[in-house]
Amino acid sequence: MYFLTAIGQYIIFLKKIFSRLEGSKILFPKILDEINDLGMSSIGFVSFISIFVGAVVTLQVAYNMENPLLPTYLIGLASRDSLILEFSPTMISLVLAGKIGSHIASSIGTMRVTEQIDALEVMGINSASFLVFPKICATIFINPFLIILSIALGLVGGWLAGNITGICPTEEYLLGIKYEFIPFNMAYAIIKTIIFAFIITTVCAFFGYNIKGGALEVGQASTKGVVYTSIFIIICNYFITHLLLN
């Protein structure tokens, strides 16, 4: 019952976000601020994780391909497809759910408990739309770039790991990552990322916006936001994959 109530409240919250939007003069600078706050500040973090994930994927693929009949370039090919189809869009989105999701839930939650949201409402501003809509636009815009960067750096990480350990020489690796490349896989990764960006922003904002209480509840909302976002991402990942790749 609680779950159904929460889903209903979430849908009402979404409706509120997309109603009575402020003009572009107000929204555009806010979207740019959010791109900087939520996206640009994540570049270093995403880059670091991607390089190591790419390296680990390459080592694991090589570990599972001990058969001498299998060509070495398959290591590059398998790493590429793993990174594009799953590791970058899903794993980095989960990581971003932790980083920017908790930031969104706690910042909006703090605004709620310190009556800043009430102050916006008294001024006649639709607080849900004013606070959350720019964040949605920002993450939907910047997250695909972060994922593309993640894929690129993951491949670099894989190349470095293959070279350093000597399990996959550069020529073989490059051949593998170019071999029978399907451009739709990139579209699939970006579609997933956009949907995950929407989930990260709205679910975490929902928990922050509906806080009742004080500082303790802000922490709880932040944790709940990240947990539910991760669950939604995993569930959506299955359905999107089923829909787009089958």
């Binding site: 009575r20 310190t114 800043q116 009430d118 008294v122 006649g124």
Partner: peptide
């Protein structure tokens, strides 16, 4: 309606207990 309420809200000032300034 919410639109008409907005006109009245422009005529209202509010000082909250904890000030509620935007951090």
């Amino acid at each position: 309606s919410e639109r008409d309420r907005k006109k009245i809200r422009k005529e209202i000032g509010m000082v909250f207990q904890g000030s509620a300034l935007f951090d």
